[in-house]
């Protein structure tokens, strides 16, 4: 009885995790600019990953695999924002160099729109206002 409940819970978590994964990948494909894609990627790295690893943990039962899955979970929990921040900061530096459009939020009015990403001038206006 309890075992079947656990396996149903595990299947639900795996299914939900797959759903968030697919949504994140869809976002990575559909969103118009780099920073928006980063939000979609961070979605696959947070809840999608937690749910899939959680489902596997329920499947694993007690033992060393459970401990190792916990380690993977903790590791991804701490590294994915670090990687995301490094990516954003690196993008910021590169677009500053190119005089890109997103860097306008750091230095409004510096340089024109250059790249094939969407030139979202509303960003600049908002950043000035805030």
């Amino acid at each position: 009885m309890i075992e079947s409940a656990v396996s149903v819970l595990a299947a639900m978590m795996l299914g939900l995790g797959s759903f968030f994964m697919i949504s994140g990948a869809l976002g990575i494909l559909r969103f118009p600019d780099f920073y928006s894609r980063m939000h979609a990627a961070s979605m696959t790295d947070t809840l999608g990953t937690y749910l899939i690893i959680g489902g596997l943990m329920f499947t694993a039962g007690w033992g060393l695999p459970l401990f190792k899955l916990t380690l993977i979970l903790v590791f991804i929990f701490f590294t994915s924002p670090t990687a995301g921040h490094a990516l954003a900061k690196s993008a910021q530096l590169s677009e500053l160099r190119l005089g890109g459009e997103q860097s306008g939020s750091a230095k409004p009015g510096a340089g024109g729109v250059h790249s094939d990403q969407h030139p979202d001038s509303r960003d600049l206006a908002r950043a000035d206002r805030v």
Binding site: A25, I28, R37, M38, A83, L87, S115, D116
Partner: peptide
């Protein structure tokens, strides 16, 4: 991916998956 950072982002996602 139009920029190099889009590609790095995609590769990061690929790796965690």
């Amino acid at each position: 991916g139009p920029t190099i950072h889009d590609r790095i982002l995609a590769v990061n996602v690929f790796g965690t998956k």
